[in-house]
Amino acid sequence: MSGRELKDLLYDQVARIARAAASPKRLELIELLVQGEKSVEQLAADAEISVKLTSAHLKQLRQARLVEARREGRRMFYRLVDQHVADFWVLLRTLAEERLLELQAATRQMAEGPGELAPMAGAELLDQARRGDLIVLDVRPGMEYAKGHLPYARSIPVNELRTRLGELPKDRPVVAYCRGPYCLMAREAVEILGEHGIHASRFDDGIAEWRYQGLPLEMESDQKEATE
């Protein structure tokens, strides 16, 4: 193999990652899998596409060694191969937001939605939550919370929030977060909380962004061990 042929091979192999990621839905599936292992059916429901199309997208991601699968009976479950894939998603999204004017306009529009953004970085949020100055509220599905969440966060999925408002004190502000900057569940939660007189804001970072910054995460098993 000539030097040119070897270089072409190297670049082509790297391009496999780019080709696998070159789909809006596959990027969304990666973000969903950042939250933890999910079945094909659950991924299809979360991404609002058919199971058949979801399987086809996952096949592309698997061929690029970005995800891996396991079978449980008739069901297939997928997960990211490692943390580098989550970091790749954060870096790719950040680069796109820095370079693309259309994306910047869309993110500004998103920022103008219900509730203000929490005026603090992750480390400060962690400090205030530790002191009890505010409530960190994880509004993702409970299974996602169990697989990894921000320290001191309480879990109330957004679809249960209206019936569980009594669990939240009204004398402290609430900071709600979900899967990341493009997730709409925190916006919905802030709107619900505001309707009931609870001061709330949104925190854009999800667990991928939080971990990328080197900040700690907790799992439900960690909390159980701490109380035993």
Rank of each mutant, 00 (worst) to 15 (best):
R70I: 07
Q63L: 12
A146M: 11
N159P: 01
H84G: 09
R74E: 15
S2F: 10
E102I: 08
L184E: 13
G132N: 13
K25P: 02
D87H: 13
A189V: 01
A18P: 04
Q223D: 14
E209H: 05
Q128W: 11
E102C: 02
Q213F: 00
D87F: 13
L215H: 02
Q213W: 00
V85E: 07
A118W: 01
A186K: 03
P114G: 10
A121D: 15
Y152W: 10
L53T: 15
E144D: 15
D138P: 00
L66E: 03
R164D: 11
Y212I: 04
L9S: 08
L215V: 02
I30E: 06
L80R: 00
R71Q: 12
V139D: 10
E98C: 09
V174P: 00
L193I: 07
D46C: 04
R79H: 09
E209N: 07
A56N: 12
L27I: 06
L58F: 02
L134E: 07
R65E: 12
Q42S: 14
P151G: 06
L101M: 09
E31F: 06
I192Q: 04
E97H: 05
D138N: 03
V14Q: 12
G214L: 03
D8W: 09
V174T: 03
R131K: 15
K147G: 11
R75Q: 15
L126R: 00
P114Y: 09
R79P: 08
L137V: 13
R179D: 01
R75L: 12
S55I: 03
L100H: 06
E160Y: 11
A129R: 04
V158L: 07
R162P: 03
S55R: 13
L29S: 02
R202M: 05
L6P: 00
S221M: 15
E218A: 08
A47M: 11
P24H: 07
E28A: 11
G132E: 09
Q60W: 13
E228A: 10
P216T: 05
K224R: 15
M110A: 14
C178M: 08
H199T: 12
E116R: 15
G206R: 00
R71M: 11
V174K: 03
I17R: 05
K52V: 14
A15W: 04
I30F: 14
R16W: 05
A208W: 02
I49D: 03
Q223R: 15
E228Q: 08
E225Q: 12
